[in-house]
Write a protein that binds this DNA or RNA. Structure first.
Lengths: 196, 196
DNA sequence: ACAAATTAGTTAGGTGCCATACTATATTCA
DNA sequence: TGAATATAGTATGGCACCTAACTAATTTGT
């Protein structure tokens, strides 16, 4: 039995160009292997990022979503409606309920019924919530900075540009139909707002 | 009722440089705002990617993890051990059990007890599993290609390089301690966020 | 005024993944 | 030989997030 020294990094599954080529060959597809490589690496990075983000915020007793709720509250002068928060964070109202539940249980936010509209229960950032943000900020931002520490200032700008376009491209995975490959405009996905 | 003409609804609000600056100012931190912006955008992209990936694979009755299991099996001539799969995919063995359970239930893989080692139960890609991969391949790879379609060939190369280094940097979020960053032989500042 | 429709928020149930602890088999060593 | 240990796989329980259905409050239509 092989006695590999498994270090157990998450480095394991970095897809290679050879793998992409093999796959495309296997299925008899005429697709640019490099594009597939970029996309596959991106997906792998996304998975890794998501996990790392949860690990990171868990250090401060938070999750990615709950942290974002706190920041969003702070950006809104400490108070916001659940529906607002849900929309701004891109999660469903049901998810927001769960996030707020936990935050409230931990004393980081509190719910307040609206006097004007009895259906609304606005969410308020508590002192402890604000303090949590303050306390975690140094380490949080230091780690974020370290994350891009392997890029030079210049490269960060380039990366930002490219990442922006790639992020737009993510919708190619979720769109109903496959769109023609043309790097010209941005398209609206499916509208979700009030009746269109 | 506010009827904003926000065209970017549903998607997470894209963090801006101004927001990063405001945050750093609010907490009194001396950190490069652009670095934070890049990191924050990256985290947002990661979240979006993870979700989009699940949506994408759900079209084919799979999840991201289950698809990766099938591909890994195909790369290993249709058979592999759960522990192998778990290590190669960077998930725990417990997670792999769950993935295999579902794949087996759907008839895409089957379990086979090993004659040599009674503890091992190797996983075999079934005909239907191979067919599933074949069937989904055209759309799958077309969507992947479309995802990076907003990047030119050259830009893809650049992006690949930068993404690789950023992916390495993700460990900055999960490491026990914050490591000093050494970009390309330059000391920016102290990485200890301690004020004063 | 009052039933119908709309809206805000919550509850219920499901998926994907993980950590911990457990069972069963194999190996090591006194 | 037999107990201790290591390994392979699994069961259990947890979190994050989702969709769909639900309750309560407001608005609308006649």
């Amino acid at each position: 039995m092989a006695k590999d020294n498994k270090v157990w990094n998450q480095n394991d599954a970095i897809p290679s160009l050879v793998q992409s080529k093999q796959q495309l060959e296997r299925y008899g597809l005429d697709v640019d292997a490099q594009a597939i490589l970029v996309a596959t690496r991106l997906l792998a990075a996304g998975t890794k990022l998501g996990h790392a983000s949860e690990v990171h915020f868990a250090r401060f007793g938070l999750s990615t979503g709950r942290y974002r709720v706190l920041v969003e509250l702070e950006d809104n002068e400490g108070e916001a409606l659940p529906s607002q928060l849900a929309e701004n964070l891109g999660v469903t109202r049901a998810t927001m309920t769960g996030l707020i539940d936990t935050l409230e249980r931990d004393g980081l936010v509190s719910r307040r019924t609206s006097a004007q509209d009895g259906r609304q229960r606005s969410v308020v950032l508590t002192e402890e919530g604000a303090r949590r943000l303050q306390d975690m900020a140094p380490e949080h931002f230091a780690r974020l900075e370290a994350m891009v520490g392997l890029l030079s200032i210049e490269e960060r700008g380039v990366f930002l540009d490219l990442l922006g376009r790639v992020t737009q491209g993510i919708s190619a995975l979720t769109d109903e139909t496959i769109k023609p490959d043309k790097p010209t405009g941005e398209f609206n996905k499916k509208q979700h707002g009030s009746k269109g």
